[in-house]
Structure formats: C-alpha cells, structure tokens
Design a protein around this nucleic acid. Structure first.
Lengths: 321, 321
DNA sequence: TGGCGAACTGAATTTTTATTCATTACTGGA
DNA sequence: TCCAGTAATGAATAAAAATTCAGTTCGCCA
C-alpha cells in the first residue's frame, strides 16, 4: 500500500531527526531527499501523530493550575509556587521566593518599578532577592505612602530603598503616610514638592509590584497602628469592598468602590496602575481568597504570583499535591 | 528552592513552545527573557527530561527491525516491508512495492542506474513503479546478461527498457547471455562492441538495483533453461557458495567464491559493484535467508529492501506482527 | 584580599528550518 | 477527451533557532 510506504518513510525521518539528532540537511543527504521535503515530512509526522511530545511536569511545578488561572482570569502569566503547608508563613516564604526569581529573570533594562509598601509578600520577595547582576533598573518608585507609625514608615522606606539597591536603581520615596488623617491633611501633603515629584512618576511605572489586601485587616495592617477605625472598616464592608491594591478598594466583582477613604489615601490610583506595562500581584493565603479573586476579576493584575493552595481555591478545585 | 523556580520556568517555556506552538521570539517577548535564553532553557528541558519525545510507530512499519538490520550488518539503510504471509508471492509483492517507492523518492537527477536482470523482485518493482515525474535518470544499464532461453532474454530486456522508460532514461542493454557456454564463447561475446560499450558503463553506475540469489536455484532460474548443470550446482555448493549477486557467488561469511563458472558469466563484478554510490539489494523469503545474510556480511549491499519475516530471521528473532 | 576559572548573559552572527514561488503532474468532472 | 483545480516538488528565500563572542559575576583558593 502506498500509504504504508509513506508512513514508513515519515517514521524513518522522524527517528533520524528526533532520536538520532541528525539535522534535516544530513537526513536529506543520507536519504537523497531534499531538505524542504524532509521538513514537510516532519510536519506530517506531527499531524499523523507519529511524533508525540509530552511534557513531564517536575515535582513542585503546577502548569495546570497556572494555565487554569491564566485562562479563567485572562492573566498574562500566573506563577504558582510549591508550598509546604497552607499557612501564612509557609505561603509568604514560597511566593516571596517565587516573586524574587520572577523579578530577577524578567526585569529589563531601564525599567521603572513601582512597589507597594504595605505588603508582607513584597517584603519577603525583597528578602529573597539576590543583587541583580547584569540588569540596571532605572528607578524604584514607592507607590503607596508609609504608615503614620514610624516603625512601619521605616519598613516602607526600607523596602523601596533595598529593592532599588538590589536592582541598581534610584529609589524614589513617597514621604507621606499612606492614609492622611483628613482630606485637608492629604491636600497639604500633596503640596510637598517631593511628594509631587514621586507621584508624577506613577505614570512612568513600567512594572508594578503589588500586594493584594483583604478588607479584613491583615496582621501587618493590624499591628501598624490604627489606620482605619472599626467604623471605617465596617463602612468599607457595607459598601461592598472586598479587597484592595495600594488601599484602593474594589468589590467582589472587581468594580472599584469609592468611599470617603479614597480622599485620604496617598497612593497610585487603579487607573494609573493600569497604565503600567506589567502589574504583578503577589498574594496568597485563605484569608485573601476573596480579595485576590476580586482583584483578578477587576483585571488590575497582569501577572499573579501565588501558592498552590490559593491557586487551587481560586479555581474552585481542591489543591494539588 | 531556587531549583524549583528554575524548573517551573523551564516547564512554562516548554509548554509555550511545544504545546502552544509559540516561537521562541514570542515567548521571549511575553516572558521578558532573551531569545538566546529561551533556546537554552529549551535545551535544558531536554536534558532535564521535561520534554519527552516518543515515536508512535504506525502499523505496518518496522523501525526496530530496520535499525536492527542497519546496526547488525552496517547497512546505510534498511527497508522492511509489511507483508501478509511468509510466502514468495506475498513477499515479492511487498518488497517490489517498497522498492518502487524507494526508487521514486530517492532517485536523483542524472543518475546511472544499474539493474540486474534475473530477479523476480526487480520485476515486481518495475511493475509497481509509476512513471517518475520530475526526475530524469541518465541511463539504465543492464548489469547482467540475459538468458540463453529467448523468452527470458526478452524478460531481461523488458525489465531494463521499462525501467528506463519509467525513469526517462536511456536504456543500455547487455546483448549477451548471462552465462556463456564456454570461456571461449564468453571471450568472443566480449569482443562485440555493443557488449563492450555496456560493460564500460558498469563503472559509472551510481545506483545499482540487484536481487540476491540463493544457490539452490530459484524457481525462475529453474524454469529459465539449463544454465547450470546439476554437477555445476553441486560444485558450487561444495566450494561453499551460499548466494550470488549477478551470478557472482560468495560464501556464507561473504567472501567471494571463485569457481570456473566465473569465467563464463557476463555481468558486473563484485568489485565493480562496490564502486557504485548505492547498491540496493532487494530480496526476501525463507529460501534466501542464508544467501541474503551472506551478501550482507560481504558488504555487497548498502541498502536492503526486504520483508518483515525475512528481516526477523536475519536478526535471529521471531518475526514481528 | 585578590586572582582565576567556571558559569551566565544578551547581542550579533551563523546555522538550521520553514515557507514562498514557479513549475509540473495528476484528478475528476463535464 | 480536455480542462480547472489540487497536490507535490526543489530552488530560493525568509524566518527561526542555536551558537559564538565578549563581557560580567561569583565562588574558591591562596
């Protein structure tokens, strides 16, 4: 049968190419068939299902979860980190490490990095980060003010300057609290030329690194001073706020929630954030499930870095092994 | 762990490349990693065994047997044809067809084809051959004389001219019997200028198509007249001859056997045969096992076309399915 | 603390592969 | 039987992938 002869030839070519590692031109010479035809035969080997390429997923990597997240939430990329147990500490360590690796492999030259200052995940990331050798980011811009509480103010400053140092960039600090005590206080702070200079940079941010906050205060937020009063928190809840990025709140379906608080917050706006080339959300843990999901639905994040447990829950599945 | 991050990235790149079919440059753009690095990651995916490429052998093809033959006998190529049953007729049909396909796909331009005239396999090949479209062989040279018996003389002539016609080449007939009645008769025949002209072509043959004969006479030989007397046959056997190509005999280990018959045969010599770029042996069937094996051991053949049963026996294995 | 070699990287280049193009033959329908 | 459309081919070319090269960094040892 003619077809069998054909298949035999395709099989032989496939064997030479994939198993014996010969170049198409070598096969061409051995078999007295033109290189163009070899190329075509190899293509047919794929359509005829003679070559089968399978991916052997290494332990600790979760391409299925990642693909699920990308497709379900329209993400540009999703990174799911291996993680020993489904507890905050373990998760922070996993995603911080993954984020550090992500940053070190994908940072390009002259990049303007925006970094949100109130995130434990980002702190971990910076802790795990080795100095970047050959890359030289342009600037690291703090896109959320610090905390009234001086010790956390230091934290925020440290995060920004450390990252700048590791990436060989200029730090651009936002010397203001994340939440001003009043609308007037905020207006006054914005008059400061240093604050203005930094805020002007917001629109130049090419890579934004942000945590995602749950409205239920995170431990860090809780210990950082009384940013919001219990009444304000209740008010937020009542208005449907489910999560925040840089203290800009949104509802469960991702739509922004405007509250009076907005007028006291000093940070990049959600709109400005969307102007960045890449917005990387780094968050995980059961406590944040609803907030993360809301952020994804709102499309605020292009790239999500999370842990396997959270990823599983975001996909409505039991977590993988 | 750093290694896990690395593996995750490799897995992701592998997924994009092999599953999603993206180009390295596209992946490079999406992941903000240089194309050179993508290429390197993909190479690591192979060494790390993350991509696994398997060949799914189509029914009716026998790459394992072919590889076995190539390796065991040092062949340039081996073609093993599917074949319904282990009987002459079935085998002839299978290998004739396979040989026709081989010829039509690997013949190059301006090739000088030498063809042995006493082979049922070659007859079948020519019968299965469709006119070759774009190729134009230069000449088809008959490299073994015809038979005294006029009807087979016609066979031989037909074989050569038909092949020439199908390949768009000039036929170069050898107008002499394959076996002269005596040394003197042979000498006289060689004086003929047409015979000389053809024999001069022997050294220009680039592709030789030959059958392989068993010393036990083939049916065809038997019905072709009394070429050899029973005594001569016994003599051949006694001298250790196991098989022949163009009536040039060799022993079980492949060494040539010189007998008085040599001086009566009009055909290409084994040495001249080795001067061809490609010598294609086309033979199968249990009766010929020993002869084929001897020919392979003698290295007279670069390419063997046979059937799956014979191939199995040549490898000392039971035949495949 | 400094020097040396191994390991990486991106840009540039080379090598390899896929595709375009022009040609030819074959198929099947009128 | 003849023709339009399809399929297949090799040469030339475009596109893609691998490698070379030059420059760094890093770890290790003196």
């Amino acid at each position: 049968m003619a077809r069998t002869n054909e298949l035999r030839l395709i099989t032989r070519v496939t064997q030479m190419y994939y198993l014996e590692g010969l170049k198409q031109s070598q096969i061409s010479a051995i078999l007295n068939i033109s290189q163009a035809t070899i190329s075509r035969l190899l293509k047919r080997a794929v359509t005829e299902n003679i070559v089968r390429i399978t991916i052997n997923v290494p332990r600790g990597t979760f391409p299925d979860l990642e693909t699920g997240l990308r497709e379900r939430y329209g993400l540009k990329e999703a990174i799911v980190a291996e993680c020993g147990e489904d507890r905050e500490e373990s998760i922070l360590s996993a995603i911080g490490d993954a984020a550090a690796h992500f940053l070190s492999t994908t940072l390009n030259d002259r990049e303007v990095i925006g970094i949100s200052s109130w995130s434990a995940s980002l702190l971990r990331m910076v802790d795990s980060l080795h100095p970047l050798k050959r890359v030289k980011a342009a600037r690291v811009v703090q896109i959320l003010g610090g905390m009234g509480n001086p010790s956390v103010q230091v934290h925020a400053t440290h995060l920004t300057t450390r990252l700048a140092q590791l990436t060989g960039a200029q730090p651009q600090l936002l010397s203001a609290p994340g939440v001003a005590s009043s609308i007037e206080a905020r207006r006054a702070l914005l008059d400061d030329s240093f604050v203005q200079a930094t805020m002007d940079e917001f629109r130049d941010v090419s890579l934004a690194l942000v945590g995602i906050g749950a409205v239920e205060p995170s431990r860090m937020l809780a210990t950082s001073g009384n940013v919001f009063t219990p009444e304000e928190l209740r008010e937020l809840k009542d208005s449907g706020a489910e999560g925040d990025i840089c203290l800009r709140f949104f509802a469960a379906d991702g739509t922004p929630v405007r509250t009076p608080l907005d007028d006291r917050v000093i940070s990049i706006s959600l709109d400005e954030l969307k102007g960045a080339d890449r917005v990387v959300g780094i968050a995980g843990g059961a406590r944040k499930d609803r907030a993360i999901k809301a952020a994804l639905l709102g499309g605020y994040v292009d790239i999500l870095i999370t842990d396997k447990f959270t990823a599983g829950r975001l996909l409505g599945e039991p977590a993988g092994t």
